[in-house]
Each structure stands twice: as structure tokens, then as C-alpha cells.
């Protein structure tokens, strides 16, 4: 049905676009593996040099700690709140749900400024909590929405049967409903992990000490301070981007599904 010429044209258009999409990635990778202007390193040694000079070890540690905390806490809280909204009836249900929905769309830049000044007067600025808890709040809004949709569509007959057997609501959630909810939970986990790992504004505002800098923040500072050539900056960029990219390559389906179906947050 499709002529050979048309098919060739299609492949050319798609290849051109794929090249455009990959181009900056290739620029960074090539630079990261190329010869460094200073230090005389090249290839994989650049990563070790960047790790050392750019202190990316410390930044990755902070990012990992923040991400694990935000993911675990917000996923557990979202499962619980989504369960309530999706399977129970109670007074104020719609109102509370709409309140949560506001959080999905709320831009973090609007809340980060007052949060900074309030946390400062409480002496909580420049702490692990000042980076993590605002991000838990942002993620919980989306997570509640996401898990509610899952529980609404879940099998009511199983829940009713378990209730008749005398199972508590707590047991029904964790032992009856959750095992089947794994795909929804995995999608939520990878999205929250990606958002938290890549977040820039909140750590930028909340953190002054170097030991609490997250990976993207560390990279931004490294760019500002390190001016001898692009090689180590590129190596640092690869280090910062790699964890999420690896997750993406293995769990691509979850990233695509999550970002397409529910991602009103970003």
C-alpha cells in the first residue's frame, strides 16, 4: 500500500528526528570520554577525576538519601490515602480530594519562597528535612491521585469477600489489594524517584552547606566554578544523569505510562 519512496522518506524523517533527540546526549558522552585539558586524563579516567574534583561522590550520596526517603514515605502515604479515597465513603470525601488535586498542579516555585522563610525562622533551613519534606508533599498529591485511580478500578468483590471473612481494613489493603497493585506502585515509585533525583529548585533554595548538595545542584555549582575545559563537566553530567537513565532503560514502560497518564505534576 505504501510506495517504496514514501517508505524511504519516512525512515529518513524518523532518523533525522532520532538524531536530533540524541545529539546533545552524544555531545556530552563524547566530551566525557575525550581528552581532558587539565590533568591529562582520558576515557573512563575522566569519571574518576570528576568524582574526585567535582565531589560527585558526596552529591550522589545526598541525592540517594533524599530520593530513598521521599520515595518510601510518599509511596506509603499515597497508598494509604489512595486506598481511603478509592474504596471508602466518608464525609468531605470530594472536598478533600479536590484539595489534594490542587497540589498536583501547584508550581513548587510558588510555595518554595514562603517555605524558605518559615523554615528559616524555625531553624530548619539547610537540613535534610528542608529538602525532603516539601518534595514528599508534592509527590503525595500526585501519588494520592494515582493510587486512588488504581483502587477505584480494583476488584470490589475480593474486598467484600475479605471483609465478610472478618479481615480488617489494614489487612485488606496490604495483603489483599496491594499484591495485585504492584504495577501501579512500581510506576509511582519510578516517577517519584525521577522527580526527586532531578529536582533542582528546592535544594537550590533550601541548602547552603556543600555536604547537603544534591547531584543536580552540585553539577550546577561545578559548572559555575570549574572553568578549565568541558571534559570533567561532561563527565559529571553523565554521572548525574545515569541513575535515572538506567532505571528508564529497564522500566521504560512504567515511565511512559506514568508520564502520559497522570503526569499533570510536571
Amino acid at each position: 500500500m505504501i510506495s517504496r519512496g514514501e517508505r524511504a522518506a519516512n525512515y529518513i524523517i524518523l532518523s533525522l528526528f532520532a538524531a536530533f533527540a540524541l545529539y546533545p546526549v552524544v555531545v556530552i558522552l563524547a566530551a566525557a570520554l575525550g581528552p581532558a585539558r587539565r590533568g591529562g586524563t582520558a576515557g573512563l579516567a575522566n569519571f574518576a577525576a570528576a568524582w574526585e574534583i567535582g565531589r560527585f561522590g558526596s552529591y550522589l550520596r545526598t541525592s540517594l538519601a533524599v530520593s530513598v526517603f521521599v520515595v518510601v514515605v510518599s509511596v506509603v502515604l499515597s497508598i494509604m490515602s489512595g486506598y481511603a479515597f478509592g474504596t471508602m465513603r466518608f464525609r468531605g470525601r470530594s472536598l478533600l480530594f479536590y484539595l489534594f488535586m490542587l497540589g498536583i498542579m501547584m508550581p513548587s516555585e510558588a510555595v518554595a519562597v514562603p517555605l524558605y522563610f518559615d523554615l528559616r525562622s524555625l531553624g530548619l533551613i539547610d537540613t535534610f528535612w528542608s529538602i525532603s519534606l516539601p518534595q514528599v508533599a508534592l509527590s503525595v498529591a500526585f501519588g494520592t491521585f494515582w493510587m486512588r485511580a488504581y483502587f477505584l478500578a480494583s476488584n470490589r468483590a475480593i474486598v467484600e469477600a475479605a471483609r465478610i471473612d472478618g479481615a480488617s481494613s489494614w489487612r485488606i489493603l496490604w495483603q489483599v489489594l496491594l499484591p495485585a497493585a504492584r504495577p501501579a506502585v512500581v510506576t509511582l515509585t519510578v516517577l517519584v524517584f525521577m522527580w526527586t533525583w532531578n529536582e533542582f529548585l528546592i535544594p537550590l533554595i533550601m541548602v547552603t552547606s556543600e555536604s547537603l548538595r544534591t547531584a543536580p545542584l552540585g553539577l550546577a555549582f561545578f559548572q559555575g566554578q570549574y572553568t578549565s575545559g568541558f571534559t570533567l563537566l561532561a563527565a559529571g553530567s553523565v554521572i548525574v544523569a545515569t541513575p535515572v537513565v538506567i532505571f528508564y532503560l529497564f522500566l521504560q514502560r512504567h515511565f511512559v505510562r506514568g508520564l502520559l497518564q497522570g503526569a499533570v505534576r510536571e
Binding site: 490515602s81 481511603a84 489534594f100 490542587l102 519534606l133 498529591a141
Partner: peptide, 26 residues
């Protein structure tokens, strides 16, 4: 969904507390 359950508020409380303190209040 389901029949009226007051226990729902308990399930909502932790999420709502973080959300209210770090988003709604700010």
C-alpha cells in the same frame, strides 16, 4: 465506593498532614 467508613480519616491523616504543612499552608 464501599460503605461509610470513619477509619478513612486515619488513612488520610499522614498524607494530609505533610501535604497541608508543606504545600497548603505555604
Amino acid at each position: 465506593p464501599g460503605e461509610p467508613r470513619r477509619v478513612a480519616y486515619l488513612y488520610l491523616l499522614p498524607a494530609f498532614a505533610v501535604y497541608a504543612v508543606f504545600l497548603l499552608y505555604p
